[in-house]
Design a protein around this nucleic acid. Structure first.
Length: 118
DNA sequence: TCCCTGACTGGTT
DNA sequence: AAACCAGCCAGGG
């Protein structure tokens, strides 16, 4: 259990910046982080379950590049994820996908600077 | 240290 | 449009 790794904390810090009602995809988080791939973001969020910070990190606001919720937690977690997002105001189309042009999180430059500064 | 796995992605078939 | 393939990086056995 390497839950306190720098990479993970970085990822969690970025995810925490996503406001309610907005979503980001794994690749977007990885791009902001600048040092890991999309798979690592998903892996970090998976580790989050064991980490105990799941209550502090809005993991539900991270979805895949197709605008759809990825299967995880045996599927039950994915169902819960959609429930939470809808409660936050995110809308799904008839195919169960989210319209990125309307709900994609666009971080401000100032926020990125906050992350990169020690 | 090697090998496998995984909440992903983008380009080809 | 859907299935496939090959990168991707960090952890755990």
């Amino acid at each position: 259990m390497a839950e306190r790794s720098k990479t993970y904390e970085e990822i969690y810090a970025i995810v925490r910046l996503i406001p309610a009602g907005k979503v980001a995809n794994y690749g977007q988080i990885a791009e902001i982080h600048g040092g890991c791939g999309a798979r690592q973001v998903g892996y970090a969020l998976n580790n989050l379950r064991s980490h105990g910070e799941i209550e502090e990190v809005p993991w539900q606001r991270v979805i895949n590049a197709r605008g759809e919720i990825s299967q995880h937690g045996g599927g039950a977690g994915s169902f819960i994820q959609r429930e939470i997002l809808e409660a936050e105001g995110v809308e799904f189309d008839t195919n169960g996908r989210i319209n990125f042009s309307r709900f994609r999180w666009v971080p401000e430059l100032r926020i990125i600077e906050t992350l990169t500064s020690p």
